[in-house]
Design a protein around this nucleic acid. Structure first.
Lengths: 150, 150
DNA sequence: TCACTATTAGATACAAGGTATCAATAACAT
DNA sequence: ATGTTATTGATACCTTGTATCTAATAGTGA
């Protein structure tokens, strides 16, 4: 559902999501929303913090990120080296194709992973409640530009 | 391949894997192997450390765990809350069904996830190099014992 | 058995990422 | 304008993990 209103900028959509949930509109949150709206790739909490005025407290950054994940505006992305990143979320539940060369990511669509998992789990007497999947590889751009040769 | 020799205890198999790779047999490593062999569930580095004599240095624990993962004796398991756990590894590449109620885990077998992922990725012009998948839910035991009711 | 050498251990310090606490401040309904 | 409540940011702290370095030890070969 999140980020469906295409006429709004990412920054505006973040602020609106907070407002909808009854959170106050404060200067730190507006600063954060603007900074997140400007990101071209997934980012870490600390990386984002480094782009913000140092007067903006560390706790505020982490608190707000957590808030935005709960609000469905951001989603967490786990990189291969275990680093936790964030990025704007486009749909409720989905997975990412993460390019390990350029850091870009696309959503994984048209995939019946969920069904396959549920069926396979059931054969083990297992009742599925959730899962975590990240897919790493080389994106089309990197392949075409020869960056994937190595 | 790891842990195929069914006549050896887990502890013995860990020690043998180290020996095969040319690592020395030392008292700390024997202590660690014994402690790991006794684990009934996946465990964290720090959790394991708390079960060891405090004279056994922190660096030694982490070094040895890394060694054992590289040797294929242990594998890493990511829990839903982001905690990194370890457990004995039974096959080269596989996934886990993790019970969020009792903490047990089983290997996910008979699953063509890899093929499905490769095919789906290819439709996005994406060349798959790796992936990370963890599946969370309720195991058969917990369902039968009513622990899953809530 | 002894001595030699490379590996290993553990102490220590450090670093990154994240959380708890709490007094001071700012938002917003009235 | 004011009072209540959410929010902030400073600070301290915690956890997990790594780097560094000296002392100890395993396993070689004599």
């Amino acid at each position: 559902m999140a980020l469906k209103k295409r006429n709004l900028s990412a920054t505006e959509q973040i602020l609106e999501a907070l407002e909808e949930r009854g959170y106050r509109s404060t200067a730190p949150r507006r600063t954060l929303a603007a900074a997140i709206g400007v990101q071209k790739r997934h980012f870490t909490a600390e990386g984002l913090r480094r782009q913000l005025p140092p007067t903006l407290g560390r706790a505020t950054v982490y608190r707000t990120l957590k808030l935005l994940v709960e609000a469905g505006v951001l989603c967490r992305v786990m990189l291969e080296d275990g680093d936790l990143h964030y990025q704007l979320s486009h749909r409720g539940h989905h997975h990412h194709l993460l390019c390990v060369l350029c850091g870009s990511s696309q959503d994984l669509t048209g995939c019946d992973i969920e069904d396959l998992l549920a069926a396979t789990s059931a054969r083990h007497g297992f009742e599925l409640s959730g899962h975590w999947l990240e897919v790493y590889g080389h994106c089309r751009d990197c392949i075409q530009n020869g960056r994937a040769a190595a």
